[in-house]
């Protein structure tokens, strides 16, 4: 048995950023996912959602739960990350000062996601988009 939901995330609209991760959290609360796990998943989905809004040209987040695992699949339609190693370094950010002034873009997003997930895989191609799969053991 598995639940899978797909949530679209539009680029640039900061006013709704956080809605998708809130919906995902509501699902987890209803299912009674243990707090520790829920917290980590929430951090990751929130970071991913903010990334999609700030950096991407729009994308989607898949959220799936089975009996023993939660899987969060994030993908966008561009622009792609030129240097993945650099993007995975803490403190590295390409965010504009405008975004930084809003308290985002500290260069902690991707490293933070990797740290909080049990499994983390990222691929990216410039001009095509970025694809992240995160898994969490229940």
């Amino acid at each position: 048995m598995i639940i899978k939901e797909t949530y679209p995330v539009a680029a640039d609209d900061m006013s709704v950023a956080g809605d998708v991760s809130a919906s995902i959290k509501r699902q987890m609360k209803r299912l009674g996912i243990p707090n520790q796990i829920m917290r980590r998943v929430s951090v990751c989905t929130y970071e991913a959602e903010i990334n999609l809004v700030i950096h991407s040209d729009g994308g989607e987040i898949d959220f799936a739960i089975s009996e023993d695992e939660i899987c969060v699949h994030v993908r966008d339609v561009g622009p792609g990350i030129p240097d993945l190693d650099k993007a995975m370094t803490e403190g590295f950010s390409t965010a504009t000062s405008e975004v930084r002034n809003m308290g985002f873009g500290a260069g902690m997003g991707l490293p933070n996601m990797k740290r909080n997930a049990d499994g983390f895989a990222i691929t990216s191609e410039v001009g095509k988009g970025t694809d992240i799969v995160m898994t969490f053991n229940i």
Binding site: M1, I3, E5, Q27, R30, L31, E67
Partner: peptide, 21 residues
């Protein structure tokens, strides 16, 4: 207070959640 949570095993909760969705 778990009154807003589904009941049963994880499997049952997932099934119920699916139905609600």
């Amino acid at each position: 207070n778990n009154s807003m949570q589904l009941e049963g095993t994880m499997k049952e909760r997932i099934a119920m959640s699916e139905r609600i969705n």
